[in-house]
Design a protein around this nucleic acid. Structure first.
Length: 746
DNA sequence: CGGCGTGCCCTTTTT
DNA sequence: GGGCACGCCG
């Protein structure tokens, strides 16, 4: 069958009919990049007669992978689609590593440690090294190690480049951290990439195998690729370099995770002879939304020339609402959602509420609940992060990988079975001295008589339980087995002993966990888990755990339910909604305080703003609050600079905070106060008075030593009020209002 | 050993 | 505001 690609535009068609050799597709937001990449794959199979088995397509999220699989299956048929390796980087690496784990000194059943497991291991290291975790923050240590791995630096290489006291500490911790992971037969997320690359380096014959296998390599979201991913992809694509990458430098928002935007910017340099295609027509949004988004992104200096345009109608001019405080902001959002729902063809599912930080979701959530708006939150506290679910997963991890002592420590006394912290500490000591896993140490202790009688008995019971569970593990279906573990562990019985609502919820969540195992099993019936080299053809507990470790919340976002969606802008990438609210448009929040010093960081924030705005199809609201509660204290901040980058005629301004006006460029005058309408909607109990501050953003003040300056932000109230002032000759200063005694100047 | 209360400090974003 | 570590008491 010869396809004519009539449903593609000229730009898209040119990109699709590219044959061999490297190609870079610069695809603006909403320009149909997924469509292009799927058609490309189909063309490889149907016209160029490439065996599906020889095609690799890598994405960043499972959701993107699934969508691509579905589209290929729809167009080319299911049989073709399942032969193609379409998956995330992490899934690709995991698949490779499972096949060759032994070559790196791992066993195939290795566990993937999540954030909290990683943190636990770091803490152990700190403890071993007698470092104070108050001074050396585990989180900071881990992010350094993570960054090192993303740049493919092993502990030795890291040590050589150490600069500063903190990094010296990290250099001590890093090798120990790796050693502990190895002892637990565990890898962290970054190891998946790092070890896959390492494997290829150490074993050229394995690399050669994958080179021969994957003749055509496609990469989605290329702007977000880090060094390790770059190495992997370019190694596999070499020497044919049939490397087809799609991305948008303006949507690179993962720099903090090691993504290096330079990879896309220098693609033509790295792969000589590369052809470049641009997709600049946006199909998603109205003209006025695209114009506003373009106006913002234009302020970035590091860009590839690309001008997005929309052929849709002008549509509604985006609105900026300046709220008094965060609650007022939430009320505005909710009220507007109701207004919009009155319009034909609109329902809750068409609305997304976006924000910069997860902490912002709470106020929005409260407002939704008060006004009976159904909502789902993507990200934040995930299902798999709940205590009871993590406990049960810890059981399963140990049962699959008995060396996993981090998980063992979590479940050994949950529910309480008389193995207290003293006993655990002693076990740990024994394990370390005799070079055993914790479970082995427990097994020994159960018979040695070294422990007190009660503890010995408790350990003996525990070991017997674990041994019998391990023996049963592969005899029944994973879902049956999980049910069995819930019973045998006494976890459910323990929950049943008190009838609090919380316990009931937990029991409910554990049922849901069993359901998720059932879903996993079902996916095998239709055999959608389509990678042929997936070692096992039938569902296993190990396979289930792998999957859980690799799924993110967005992946499961179903649009069946009629709910408003709440999520961060990071999570929103790749999605679209008719009506979008971007909340928290304030200096210090967006752009975030931690990203305001370096120009590169501000540029990334701006790209994030661009990503957020371009999610909107028809209607876009930008909202910000003059005063917001952070960690329980009020903070006053100026409107985001990104607002002032949108020309006046491209945005309509409204709000009720007439007293505090934008200072960034002083562009906004607040008109059209809609207070009356709010009061009708508001729950009276909710409407507490905002905290007043003696200064306002934009005030000029005089300081004894620093002279005249302008107020940029206010944090706290009363005696704790801290004022951020910018002085012409002394720069930014944070001053305690009580001590500094700033004098207001007219 | 284990339950419970107090106080501290923060996570910006996530596969 | 709230999760987590620590300390006290039954």
């Amino acid at each position: 069958m010869k396809r004519t690609y009539q449903d593609l535009n000229e730009e898209q068609r040119e990109a699709v009919v590219h044959n061999a050799g490297p190609a870079l597709i610069l695809a603006g937001a909403g320009s149909g990049k997924t469509r292009v990449i799927t058609y490309r794959i189909i063309r490889l199979v149907e016209e160029m007669k490439v065996s599906p088995f020889r095609i690799l397509a890598v994405t960043f999220t499972n959701k993107a992978a699934q969508e691509m699989k579905d589209r290929v299956a729809n167009l080319a048929g299911y049989q073709q689609a399942r032969e193609i390796f379409i998956g995330t980087f992490h899934r690709l690496c995991l698949t490779i590593l499972k096949l060759h784990a032994d070559k790196l000194g791992y066993q195939p059943g290795f566990t993937i440690y999540d954030d909290s497991d990683q943190k636990a291991v770091i803490k152990e290291c700190l403890w071993d090294l007698k470092l104070d975790e108050k001074q050396v923050h585990p989180y900071a240590v881990h992010s350094h190690i993570s960054a090192a791995k993303n740049e493919l630096k092993d502990p030795k290489e890291y040590e050589e480049l150490v600069a500063g006291i903190f990094q010296e500490k990290v250099a001590q911790i890093y090798p120990r951290y790796q050693q502990k992971l190895r002892e637990n037969n565990a890898m962290d997320f970054d190891d998946l990439l790092f070890n896959a690359v390492l494997l290829m380096k150490k074993h050229p014959e394995i690399l050669e195998g994958y080179r021969r296998r994957f003749e055509y390599v496609q990469v989605d979201e290329y702007q977000d690729i880090n060094s390790a991913q770059y190495q992997l992809v370019s190694a596999i694509a070499h020497p044919l370099n049939n490397l087809y990458v799609v991305g948008d430098p303006d949507q690179s928002i993962y720099g903090w995770r090691g993504a290096d935007i330079r990879n896309i910017l220098r693609f033509e340099h790295d792969f000589p002879g590369a052809r470049v295609f641009k997709l600049q027509q946006n199909y998603r949004s109205t003209k006025s939304i695209i114009q506003a988004a373009q106006a913002v992104i234009r302020n970035n200096s590091q860009r590839k020339e690309k001008e997005l345009f929309s052929l849709r109608e002008m549509g509604e001019t985006p609105t900026y609402y300046q709220a008094e405080d965060d609650k007022d902001e939430a009320e505005f959002v909710v009220k507007t959602v109701y207004e919009r729902l009155g319009q034909p063809g609109r329902s809750f599912r068409h609305v997304a509420l976006l924000y910069r930080t997860n902490a912002q979701s709470r106020v929005l959530e409260d407002a939704c609940r008060r006004h009976n708006i159904p909502y789902i939150i993507v990200g934040g506290l995930k299902f798999y992060d709940r205590k009871e679910v993590k406990d049960m997963l810890a059981y399963l991890h140990v049962l699959v990988n008995p060396k996993d002592s981090v998980s063992l420590r979590r479940m050994i006394n949950t529910p309480i079975r008389g193995i207290g912290s003293g006993t655990v500490a002693k076990l740990e000591e024994n394990a370390k001295q005799q070079d055993l896993s914790m479970l082995e140490a427990a097994r020994l202790a159960a018979t040695s008589g070294e422990f007190p009688k009660k503890a010995t008995q408790a350990l003996a019971n525990f070991v017997a339980m674990m041994d019998s569970l391990i023996a049963e593990r592969d005899l029944i279906a994973p879902s049956e087995f999980v049910k069995h573990v819930l019973e045998r562990s006494g976890y459910l019985t323990d929950l049943a002993t008190d009838d609090s609502l919380e316990s009931k919820m937990r029991a409910e969540n554990l049922k849901e966990l069993v359901n998720s195992v059932l879903d996993y099993e079902k996916s095998f019936e239709k055999s959608a888990e389509g990678n042929t080299e997936e070692a096992a053809k039938k569902p296993t507990l190990e396979g289930y755990l792998d999957q859980v470790s690799l799924v993110a919340d967005v992946d499961k976002l179903e649009d069946k339910k009629n709910c408003v969606t709440l999520m961060t802008m990071h999570n929103a990438k790749g999605l679209e909604f008719p009506i979008v609210f971007i909340t928290g448009m304030e200096e210090g929040l967006f752009p975030h305080n931690n990203s305001m010093e370096e120009d590169d960081d501000v540029q990334e924030e701006r790209r994030l703003c661009y990503v957020g705005m371009t999610r909107a199809m028809d209607v876009l609201y930008l909202t910000g609050a003059a005063c917001r509660y952070v960690y329980g204290t009020p903070q006053w901040r100026a409107p985001s600079r990104f607002l002032s980058e949108i020309p006046k005629d491209m945005i309509q301004v409204t709000g009720k905070a007439a007293s505090i006006v934008a200072t960034q460029g002083g562009l906004y005058e607040v008109k059209d106060v809609k207070k009356k309408e709010f009061d009708e909607l508001k729950d009276p109990e909710w409407d507490d008075e905002p905290v007043m501050a003696p200064y306002a953003i934009g005030d000029t003040v005089r300081h004894k030593h620093f002279g005249k300056g302008m107020v940029l932000a206010l944090i706290g109230s009363g005696d704790d009020l801290t004022v951020t002032v910018s002085f012409p000759n002394h720069g930014k200063k944070q001053l305690k209002a009580k001590i500094a005694k700033l004098e207001k100047v007219e």
